[in-house]
Simulated assay, not measured.
Amino acid sequence: VERMESISRVNSSDHVAACQRSNVIISLIDEKLKYRDSRAKDFSAKCQGLKFLPFVTKPAGFSLNWKGNYFKMATMFSAAELYTVEHQDVVCLLKPILNENSPSFKGCGSISLAVKDFLGLIRKPTINLVLNQLKEVANYCEDITLYQENITNACYKFLLEAMTQNEANKVMITAELKDCSFILVENTYVDAAKVAFHLNFEAAPYIYPLPNKYKNNFRELFESVGVKRTFAVEDFAKVLESIRQDSESKQLTENNFQLCRRIISEGIWG
């Protein structure tokens, strides 16, 4: 414990040296655990609160607000404050990520499962945290990147799995997302009222078909929050009214005129 506490002092002048010391301490913990040291459990809670672990800095090309960017590069965290890279896509905008690179790359080195368990690092994010991550990523609606798609898909996957575990989770997730613009379609995020599983003509930015990859992988999630099988006449009527309001008594643009024709011929009468 004293060696772990000393890392803060070392880190104040030499971050790489602090990472190296962190790596050594992790190896020592691993050795103690292998020999089933009876005192290990007594120190576990205290060790989880000590700031001796480095975090991952923002990846190249990552255009969103990576949580790690809010801290100085030499900041050390406790295990209780970090999540492992396994959960990066569902927490990285809200929580710092443990850096298991080698000390020369400002990490603490690879950590065994036994040590992760000892430090409390084998834990899943809460449902609320992942919901907030999804809401956060959905704030970025321009030039959707692969990073953003991966984060979005990871959140969908996590929440779908949580929904299938018990009814309470399903009720909570549905309530949180029902009126939220969280569905990624055509380079933007929209709410469930604007999406249907089937729509055979182009009607953006008013209504959208659910992308096939989501139909196949996350059907129950989207059904639960109210994505319809198909749009009803009332939905198409609302689109026509929205187009009228957006035109503000001006002549319809060619695009909107053609959209109105499609809404009537393929939607209402289709």
Rank of each mutant, 00 (worst) to 15 (best):
V85S: 13
F231Q: 01
G270C: 07
D179L: 12
I29R: 04
S38W: 07
L240H: 05
V239E: 02
D89A: 09
Y206E: 10
T152M: 06
A237T: 07
R21Q: 14
L93H: 06
G267W: 02
F43Q: 11
V16R: 13
T164Q: 15
V190D: 04
S38G: 05
A114L: 07
S6R: 13
N255D: 15
D14I: 02
P96T: 06
G107I: 02
F77D: 04
S78V: 07
I7M: 11
E176Q: 13
P125Q: 08
Q258F: 14
K32V: 00
V10Y: 05
N187Q: 14
A162Y: 01
A80P: 01
Y83T: 03
T253C: 08
V171P: 00
I127T: 12
L252R: 10
E202C: 11
A203F: 00
I151T: 07
K157D: 14
E136D: 10
S242F: 06
S110G: 09
I7L: 12
V56L: 15
I127P: 01
K215Y: 09
Q258R: 15
R21Y: 10
K157C: 08
N101S: 13
R262V: 00
H198N: 14
E2N: 08
K238C: 10
Y140M: 05
C47W: 14
S242N: 14
M73W: 14
R39D: 02
V115Y: 00
F236L: 05
V190R: 03
D191H: 08
N169M: 01
E266Y: 11
D191A: 04
F71K: 12
L82K: 02
V56K: 15
D30Y: 07
K135M: 06
N99G: 05
A60F: 12
E234M: 09
K213D: 10
T145E: 02
F52H: 09
S38R: 14
I263T: 04
H15P: 05
I151L: 12
R262H: 13
N255V: 15
C260T: 08
I127N: 04
I26W: 03
P103V: 03
P209K: 08
A74M: 11
A45S: 12
Y208W: 13
P59S: 10
M172C: 05
